[in-house]
Design a protein around this nucleic acid. Structure first.
Lengths: 263, 263
DNA sequence: CGAGAGTTTGATCCAGTTCAAGGAAAGTGG
DNA sequence: CCACTTTCCTTGAACTGGATCAAACTCTCG
């Protein structure tokens, strides 16, 4: 069963839009630019999404399922996860979010939010209001397309996660999951082939992979004893990445982004 | 193990764009209009997506994983399913598509397709080229927003499916799945609270729910003997829909669409 | 009528769960 | 700086939901 904390939010004062606005080059901008060549005015529109800087403490619930008129966030720093609770108190983690990820987009497109998001570490993010987004799209079709692309990429990850749960053994799931996390970290320039820092607990893993926390522990031990990965003390170390890729049937295709599609 | 057929495609001649273009009012248009109020020119852009009429025989693989420059389809009639194959020959069905569903959108946004789609019944659909879509978005930001909304709705279904696989028992999964299918059918005006016609086999159910076909059979028997649902001879009959909803922890929230958000 | 495609049922097995308990690390407050 | 708590990790033992193997039964349809 999940452990739930209900900490405080620290809301930073709104940051003024100075010259910084012209060169936001946050991880999201970088990500989107990899897909569509955004013009100066597109970038300006996107920069307007970054007006409201916010910080959240670890454990804070940033988005609540069932809430109306929820705003979205662009994550600049830290880790979060989106999840759903079941009536019996079980929790299913749908995805983890890191720097550059858009979070809660669905909750602005729908009237009421269909999932929750909780901060794992301390979070730095920009709050984006529904109207910012909708107006932004109206002014910049390319931005809308880029965001659609980013959303599709997220969906591809959820699909891969689905396959994981539906058809892979506990060991394969774990291997696949850690590799995906590693690959995503590398895409934003954190970590390398040898591993990455990871603030997740075994409970997070259990709730993401549809396993019990006890079994997660055993699976991690197996993988470690086979010399494949070591997850200890907040660090994932890929001891034998090729062996791991082989075990997981891992394929980075769905994460790859090889140059802009739209110019 | 899945049964795979490789039948032929019948490609109908391109349908001319007559007055029909002005009043396409296909199920997709209806669906999108429920979210954004589309102007005349938006509708025209959307109508241009319907130039290339196609038919496919049951069993035809409409979209192949790994293919490049794949086009998308708007489904007008019939059932299809999207899936992924695993190296060991296992299949995971990600979603089923019915009339009004956009299919293969991700495969045009990405360079190479990350999933396959197979026709279950005979299919009538419009083929939409990547350029149609990208140009369409450039001309009509509202259309782009509407499609993003539709894609998000699909993602919400995938997420619900994920929760299903991760945290629900076989019986709950089946109950939830059949209810969702029923609700979707009703949204496009097919079937009612008593049930709907359903061309799926127990193999389809197994590959969608991450179960063995044998167990699917047993679960269906249990549900039938409890007087909850009967799935026989191509028809799902909700014998006790309230009991079923209760068992599944089903909530239609994520499918609801209560009036346009954007005017 | 014969052949595939799909459904049904029984018997056996195992991957992962549940229950139970200790242990280590890291904060917290006196 | 030491007791005390909380969070998280680890391991053992027993159990079970769903898988697997095997076989027969029922459609349809060519």
């Amino acid at each position: 069963m999940p452990f739930l904390n209900t900490p405080l939010t620290k809301q930073d004062p709104t940051v003024s839009m100075g010259t910084a606005m012209m060169t936001p080059q946050g991880p999201l901008t970088r990500k989107l630019s990899a897909f569509v060549a955004l013009s100066g005015s597109d970038l300006e529109t996107l920069a307007r999404f970054h007006k409201r800087r916010r910080s959240f403490l670890a454990g804070h619930e940033m988005i609540h399922e069932g809430q109306k008129n929820q705003s979205a966030f662009i994550l600049a720093k830290g880790w979060a996860f989106s999840y759903k609770m079941l009536p019996d108190g079980d929790r299913q983690i749908v995805d983890f979010q890191i720097a550059g990820d858009f979070l809660g987009l669905r909750s602005v497109l729908f009237r009421t939010t269909d999932h929750s998001v909780e901060a794992i570490t301390r979070i730095e993010a920009s709050e984006v209001l529904a109207t910012d987004i909708l107006d932004g799209f109206a002014h910049s079709p390319r931005l809308a397309t880029a965001i659609l692309w980013a959303a599709s990429r997220d969906e591809a990850m959820v699909v891969e996660h689905l396959v994981n749960l539906g058809r892979r053994s506990a060991e394969e799931r774990m291997a696949h999951f850690l590799l995906e996390l590693g690959a995503r970290q590398q895409l934003v320039g954190i970590g390398d082939r040898t591993g990455f820092d990871c603030p997740l607990t075994q409970y997070h893993l259990a709730d993401a992979l549809g396993l019990s926390a006890v079994h997660v522990n055993r699976v991690l031990r197996n993988l470690r004893e086979q010399g494949l990965v070591t997850f200890q003390k907040g660090r994932v170390a890929f001891d034998d990445i090729d062996g791991l890729v082989e075990l997981a049937g891992f394929d980075t295709e769905y994460l790859d982004q090889d140059g802009p599609l739209m110019r």
